[in-house]
Amino acid sequence: MSAATEIKTLIIDGKDVSARPDQTILDVARENGINIPTLCHLDGLSDVGACRLCLIEIKGQNRLLPACVARVEEGMEVTTTSERIARHRRTILELLFAERNHICAVCVANGNCELQALAQQLGLTHVRFPYRNPALAVDASHERFTCDHNRCILCTRCVRVCAEIEGAHVWDVEGRGADCKVITDLAQPWGDKNSSCTKCGKCVQVCPTGALYEKGKVGVEHPKRPDFLPYLNLMREAQ
C-alpha cells in the first residue's frame, strides 16, 4: 500500500471508523469490534455474497447491501442491525434449517457448527416453514473424509478453498435451484481412485457445518480451524 493511500472515514452503528478504500464494510466493522453474521464469507477466500446474512443498511439507500463485498465510501452511514435486517437474517436461517436435514442432536458438528451458533446468536427458537426432508446421499468413499449432503448449506467455501488455495479445484456445484449439490470432480465419488483430491483436508477445515468431516471424529473432538487461511495467505505473500 503506497503512502499516498487515501483514508476514508465512515460511521458504522454510530461509531466513527476509518478505512482504506479497498476494504469492505465487513472488514472495517470486524476491525472495530462490530460483529456482522456471515456464513459464505471466510477470511482468506474470495467473496461471493451468496448467503445474504451480512446484509446491512446504508443511510439514503433503500436497497440492502452485502457487507462482505460492499466497499467503504467516504461519509457512509452504515447500520448493521435493525428490526428489518434481523427479520431477514432469521428468515434466511429458518430457510436453511428447513431446506435439508439439519438435526443438531445427531450431527458430528454439534457444538462446533457455525449454522447452529448463528441460530443461537440471532435468537432463532423455532422454524416456521415445513421441513422438506429431502433424501440426500452421504459420500463416505474417501479414506479420510465424509461428505454428508444433508448438512450442506451450499456456502461454496469448499469449492473456493480447493480452487483458490489448494489449486486443485476438486469441488464444484452441480444442478440448479434446490437441486444444487456440491460435487467432487465430475460428480464422481470423492474417494474414486482417479480422484483429483490431494487429501489436504482444507475443505473440511473451512466447512461451517457437519457436511464435510473427518472420519472417526465427532462433536467436541471435531473443532474446525478455518483461521489457518489468513495465516497461510500471509506466509505465501511474504515469500
Binding site: G49, A50, C51, R52, L95, G177, A178, C180
Partner: peptide
C-alpha cells in the same frame, strides 16, 4: 441456487 433467499425461499 447461489443465494439462499431465492433458492430456498421460492421453494417454500
Amino acid at each position: 441456487g447461489k443465494c439462499i433467499p431465492c433458492r430456498a425461499g421460492t421453494v417454500q
